[in-house]
């Protein structure tokens, strides 16, 4: 399994506070990985760095077979390179329909000229319908996404991520605020997605992580504390001390 993303020796300081401290992390193609850690462990900042929102003070972020450094790219270019990100709270474009949301996310040329003259082809529309089916929003295609329930918005966002066809999915607490059935559905979608691409899930909920059944990375104070299967890390004394023990 080749490495898709390699983060090595990254540090970030905000006003003297070291949010990320010499963090190293790597993930291969078609791998599912859960990242856990207490509040303030640097999970969100880690995602910010990978997606280009925050520039680290030092370290390297290397992407793909051609070993491109993501640090030099803008957020949009990183997204185009194949990194998709889902925020903690659902952020869909509420003033627009589900269809418009999905169409916007479809993997198509992103330049303004191309977008201005864009006309959806039959296959594009088929893709949208297919995605809507996957996320259970077939009936809601014409509805404004602002009218959707919280869980539906979460799925719509995941659907938009899938429409982007990213090679790496960064998902921030996908199950927050969901009913048990919705969680199950979400798990299914993520597991399905992880078959063809790398998925990183940041999550608090141990149950949810257990259901994902994947390698787990534990972050603490901006650095990797432990890595391995969930059982392996939960038996690690350090992890118990800083996180689970309390």
């Amino acid at each position: 399994m080749s490495t898709l993303l390699e983060v090595s020796g990254v540090s970030v300081t905000f006003d003297g506070f070291r949010a990320i401290n010499n963090l190293s992390f790597s993930i291969g193609d078609a791998e599912l990985r859960a990242v856990i850690g207490p509040n303030g462990a640097g999970k969100t900042t880690f995602m910010d760095i990978v997606t280009g929102k925050t520039k680290p003070d030092e370290g390297r972020v290397i992407w793909g077979e051609k070993s491109i450094s993501l640090l030099k790219l803008s957020e949009a270019k990183i997204a185009q390179a194949g990194v998709g990100r889902k925020f903690q709270k659902p952020t869909v474009f509420e003033d627009q329909t589900v269809e418009e949301n999905l169409t916007m996310a479809l993997k198509k040329p992103r330049g303004w000229m191309a977008v201005l003259t864009y006309k959806p082809t039959a296959s594009d529309r088929a893709k949208v319908v297919d995605l809507a089916k996957q996320i259970g929003l077939t009936d809601a295609l014409e509805r404004k996404s602002g009218e959707l329930s919280h869980g539906q918005k979460q799925w719509l966002e995941i659907g938009m991520l899938l429409a982007q066809e990213p090679r790496l999915l960064l998902v921030d607490e996908p199950a927050a605020g969901m009913t048990p059935e919705e969680r199950e559905h979400t798990t299914d979608i993520l597991l399905e997605a992880a078959k063809t691409r790398a998925v990183v899930v940041v999550e608090h909920d141990m149950e949810f992580v257990r259901r994902l059944n994947c390698r787990v990375t534990v972050l603490h104070e901006g650095a990797v504390l432990a890595e391995g299967s969930l059982d392996h890390v939960t038996s690690n004394q350090d992890v118990i001390d800083v996180y689970l023990g309390r």
Binding site: T51, K53, S74, E75, A76, K77, A79, Q80, G84, R85, F87, T91, V92, F93, E94, D95, Q96, E100, N101, T103, M104, A105, R110, G111, W112, V115, L116, Y118, P120, M160, Q164
Partner: peptide, 22 residues
Amino acid sequence: KFGSVIKGIRDNEARVRFLGYS
């Protein structure tokens, strides 16, 4: 779609950026 993108920029600029639009 252009309209979708600019309305998206209006409502949530960062999200549009993470969708890969400059």
